[in-house]
Amino acid sequence: MTVVRTTLPPDMETEEMLSRYLEEDLDHDERAVVETLLQERPDIRAELESLRQTLSLMQRLPSLEAPSDFVQKVKRKVRRQKRTRIDQQPQFRMPYEILGIIVVILMLVLYLLVQQHDTSSSKNPAPRSRTSLPPRSPAPAASRDHVAPKTNTIVPTSKPLSSPSSP
């Protein structure tokens, strides 16, 4: 003999039970409870009927159709968005490009400065140390007479020159 419960499980409200009853989502025992309640309680019968009507109304709502030019509109928007993305790209790249150009210019300027410095230092070499001779300056005319030019000076030797063939 099977015992049929006549009360709902404590965690389930009547409304939920009825909704699941319409979905045929109840197990055998739960279904038996609902059917007993429906036989005994006119208020639950009315509740079930109004739930059924509500669902029926929803399911019979007219379905809308998109406008006939919907696809064209979507494709236009897609194209526009692609263009916008392309247009926006330089704005995002600009700082990096500018930064790159600035770095290149700085390097160029630096290179030119170094080159210029090298050139000027080769034209005007730095003064040598004190032990080295001072740069030659033109001698005054009076003193020039006393100094014989080195190239014409004949230095006399203490010994007469002898040839290897002489005795």
Binding site: A46, S56, L57, R60, P62, L64, E65, A66, P67, S68
Partner: peptide, 14 residues
């Protein structure tokens, strides 16, 4: 109680 409703025909949006 005990009602039924005629289904609606589809209509174009707008």
């Amino acid at each position: 109680t005990g009602a039924s409703i005629r289904p609606q025909q589809g209509r174009r949006f707008g």
